[in-house]
Amino acid sequence: MLTAMHKQLLNDYQQDFPLSPTPYQDIASSLGVTEEDVLLAFNELADEHFISRIGSIIVPNHIGVSTLVAMAVPVEQLQSIADIVSRYPEVNHNYERENRFNLWFVMIAKDDEYLQSVIETIETESGFNAMQLPLLADYFINLGFEMDFDD
């Protein structure tokens, strides 16, 4: 069960987590609780998988290169092809979407040459074309969002 403090931690610290020597103490001070309370609450949120981590979201293509890739795979082969794709460490998200292009994954590598070689290998191993859709411009990257806890 989420307490009021859990909800505050979920909502208010997605963007600007304190960059100070004692971030949890800073949060505790602003919430009027103890540092121990905050640490315990974050551990609970992580244990219950409400948060995946406290970490950073990096702008794509500034550190290494990345691309979104789409494949059109017959439904009965989807799981086996997805398994092939997921085995590559360069693939970090891999999911099904409702479309004729039904397998979508994001790849990251240190440079373009290496990225292209891995994509070719995946095409060969899977037997399907990989449609590359690299980012050309990001108008807005904000994976943080305000949650509506009421409904």
Binding site: L9, Q14, D16, S52, R53, G55, S56, H62, N142
Partner: peptide, 18 residues
């Protein structure tokens, strides 16, 4: 962060679980 390479630093929530 200032350079914009770190777009945000903070709690990364699990949408599905929420």
């Amino acid at each position: 962060k200032e350079l914009g390479l770190i777009k945000r630093l903070g709690v990364i929530v699990n949408h599905r679980k929420l």
